[in-house]
């Protein structure tokens, strides 16, 4: 009977090792979490922690609130995972939770951010918007930092309807269809809000960008 099995070759262990290296799909991990595996949930956290932090930071504009919202988003995901029915992908569901947690936090803030883009960002104002290739020069680093800060302040000032669309589409690079799924709005609504958000950002960054030209 043993002879009916194909002879062992050197290739088989290699193939098996390669198979083991393949990432376990989110759907499998979600099912494992549903049966009580905290290791599976940790793997899901590991996969999306940077993306979720990036979303909460863009939405809230400061590291402290962003960390709190990141934790809350994962905790909520864990709590409601037993009800997740795979009607969307796990990550768009998670992005939706992170966006909603951030929007709730924004609504609870008593005072809006008082920093205005009209305020001077610094006293240096030369150079081009095109960042030079010299990535290591202190000047380039400084310009990049100022640009990053100006963008974040401009995002902070966007209305709550436009902010998540711009964050998910332009800053996180999600296709319009996934933004639509994450936010529970139609694709035409995504495009319309995106355009309006970009036009507002353009106005807010206008003065700043002109400084660099």
């Amino acid at each position: 009977m043993a002879n009916r099995l194909p002879p062992q070759t050197d290739q088989q262990p290699k193939a098996l090792a390669e198979l083991k290296k393949l990432p376990v799909p989110d759907t499998v991990l979600v099912e494992r979490v549903k049966t009580g595996s905290s290791e599976a949930f940790e793997e899901l956290v590991r996969r999306y922690e940077h993306k979720i932090y990036s979303i909460t930071y863009r939405m809230l504009g400061n590291p402290e609130d962003a960390r709190e919202a990141q934790q809350e988003a994962f905790l909520r995901a864990y709590r409601f995972l037993p009800k997740f029915e795979f009607k969307s992908s796990f990550y768009t569901w998670l992005y939706r939770i992170a966006t909603n947690v951030s929007l709730t936090k924004l609504r609870r803030r008593k005072e809006p951010p008082t920093v205005s883009l009209d305020e001077p960002i610094g006293d240096e104002g030369s150079g081009g918007l095109e960042i030079p290739d010299d990535k290591h020069s202190p000047e380039t680093h400084f310009k990049r930092r100022r640009l990053k800060d100006a963008i974040q302040r401009a995002i902070d000032e966007l209305p709550p309807d436009y902010k998540p669309v711009v964050v998910l589409r332009d800053m996180e690079g999600l296709p319009n269809e996934e933004v639509s799924e994450s936010l529970g709005i139609s694709v035409p609504a995504v495009k319309s809000r995106l355009h309006r958000g970009r036009m507002m950002l353009r106005e807010k960054l206008g003065k700043y960008m002109a400084e660099y030209e």
């Binding site: 956290v45 640009l147 990053k148 332009d170 960054l205």
Partner: peptide, 26 residues
């Protein structure tokens, strides 16, 4: 200016450097 706006926003892709470590978060 529209092109520049979209370009600079897309340059910002990725987690900010102050993101907590996996160990801290977990």
């Amino acid at each position: 200016s529209y092109r520049q706006t979209v370009t600079v926003c897309r340059m910002e892709k990725g987690a900010p450097e102050h993101a907590p470590s996996h160990k801290q978060l977990w």
